[in-house]
């Protein structure tokens, strides 16, 4: 178990309506305890998972959007968002939650976790990871 691998979680579905996003997050949180390099990518309707000011109270489902903001505490610091998926849905990075992580090497400066990438860049990222889990 000492081997370090690069894990990438692909999130492709809206946060509510199906359980994929919530159960993906559960894997990410468990996986973070295994001291592997963990990154997340959001594409297709998955970009809705990061929308700011979500209110799930009328759905009967548990709202879990705050969990994404805690990912930095689990050393999950790279949340790639595909810009084509945003644009297709009339969204911009400004519509997303301000998610940050604290850099202990720079006096705990807060740095943005969200990294906009193009479809082509995301393809390269997928190729560059050892384990790709798709939800």
């Amino acid at each position: 178990m000492s081997e370090m691998k690069k894990f990438l979680y692909l999130n492709r579905k809206a946060p509510y309506g199906t359980i994929y996003a919530l159960e993906s997050l559960e894997v990410v949180l468990i996986g973070a305890a295994f001291e592997q390099e963990v990154s997340l990518a959001f594409l297709d309707d998955g970009v809705f998972q990061l929308m700011n000011n979500q209110d799930a109270s009328g759905t009967g489902m548990k709202g879990f959007s705050k969990t994404y903001r805690a990912l930095g505490d689990y050393e999950v610091r790279k949340l790639y968002v595909e810009t084509e998926s945003l644009a297709l849905r009339g969204l911009a990075v400004d519509d997303l939650m301000p998610i940050t992580w604290e850099d202990e090497d720079e006096d705990y400066a807060e740095k943005p976790s969200i990294i906009p990438v193009s479809k082509a860049e995301l393809a390269e990222l997928i190729a560059g990871h050892d384990v790709v889990l798709s939800f």
Partner: peptide, 20 residues
């Protein structure tokens, strides 16, 4: 068993393939 079994499988296997 727990989700750790999935992470371990990702670490131990040469390829993890997702069907869905």
């Amino acid at each position: 068993s727990g989700l750790g079994q999935l992470i371990e499988a990702g670490i131990q296997a040469d390829r993890l393939i997702v069907f869905g």
